[in-house]
């Protein structure tokens, strides 16, 4: 197995006189064929991680201060926007959260699909059309030829997300980033879209990073999990390990907050408090104000991300 993506000591900070840390020393690897889940609450830095990999952080306000993002052997951090354009859409493809607004309302589906080919292949019009129809068939869109002429507003949310997947798959990317691909969809549509993603992943042997806060999606579709909290990785491991034996109190809290169907009704577990604001980051362990087992040490000293077993790492002084 080869490493497709390696993020090494990635630090992202706000610009300005008093920079605030947004991502702190983020380290992880994605092996070829893996489906990695990055989970965490809103504001934990999941989306920032994706945007950093894509080189699409906002132009003003935030920047990568140190670290490397290695796509196979290329360090993307130093890449110019032009060089990144050749990578985005071809080697790294992305599916975003909001299918309703992620397609341009003024252009047809066919036009937006064709754009990927225009920048990454030298297909002629006929090739583009043929490939586009193939792709729409792959993502199980009925009537593909007709749908190419449709405008986004003529399609449902599930259909639009399939179009997004088709756009992402167009150039057989090495890495597929899916930023909350199903959050905005109905439950039944969620299942369909995830099935399509898993099928395609198996068919093409694609490597995938799914960002989500839906642990059910993680359990069903992923084999490795990273749990992020306040811009840091707090725990990583395989899906089984994380779900069966969470080592970090935050991970445990997340798992306990899943409502179970068929279980006797009881009050759902909640993690008290909110993710801290970036300009009021607690000292010591960033999770300590919300942690049920925090001690004096957690307030004073920041824990490091320790390896406890192979492939298993936890950032906590009082590993569960």
């Amino acid at each position: 197995m080869s490493t497709v993506l390696e993020v090494k000591n990635l630090n992202v900070e706000t610009t300005g006189k008093l920079p605030h840390s947004i991502l702190k020393n983020v380290n992880f690897q994605v092996q070829s064929g893996d489906t990695l889940a990055i989970v965490g609450e809103s504001g934990s830095g999941k989306s920032m991680t994706v945007l950093s990999i894509l080189g699409l952080l906002p132009v003003t306000g935030v920047r990568i201060t140190s670290g490397e993002i290695l796509l196979e052997d290329k360090d993307l951090v130093g890449y110019s926007d032009d060089k990144m354009n050749a990578i985005r859409g071809k080697e790294i493809a992305t599916i975003f959260q909001e299918p309703m607004t992620s397609l341009n309302p003024s252009f047809t589906v066919g036009n937006q699909l064709a754009e990927v080919f225009r920048y990454h292949t030298n297909y002629n019009r006929k090739d583009v059309k043929k490939r586009s129809i193939e792709l729409l068939k792959k993502v199980k869109i009925p009537d593909p030829e007709e749908k190419l002429k449709a405008y986004p507003h003529e399609l449902s949310g599930g259909m639009r997300q399939r179009i997004m997947i088709a756009i992402a798959l167009a150039c057989n990317p090495k890495l597929l980033l899916a930023d909350e691909p199903t959050t905005a969809l109905d439950v039944t549509i969620q299942a369909q879209v995830l099935d399509i993603l898993t099928d395609l992943k198996n068919e093409f042997g694609m490597t995938m990073v799914i960002i989500t806060h839906d642990l059910a999606v993680v359990a069903e579709n992923c084999n490795k999990v990273i749990v992020m909290y306040a811009g840091q990785i707090v725990e990583m491991g395989s899906v089984e390990e994380i779900f069966q034996k969470p080592k970090h109190p935050y991970t445990q809290g997340l798992i306990q907050s899943i409502p179970g169907i068929g279980k006797p009704k009881e009050r759902l577990h909640t993690i008290r408090g909110n993710v801290p604001d970036i300009n009021q980051m607690p000292k010591g362990c960033r999770f300590h104000p919300r942690c049920e087992i925090a001690t004096e040490k957690c307030i004073k000293q920041e824990p490091i991300l320790e390896s406890i077993e192979s492939g298993r790492r936890v950032r906590c002084w009082h590993t569960l």
Partner: peptide, 24 residues
């Protein structure tokens, strides 16, 4: 969001400005 999608497809910023954004 569609601007981000276009950028994620590898469309250069200039084209995104003059095609995707301007049209809308």
């Amino acid at each position: 969001d569609y601007v981000r999608t276009a950028r994620a497809k590898g469309v250069p910023r200039r084209t995104v400005n003059l095609k995707h954004i301007l049209r809308n």
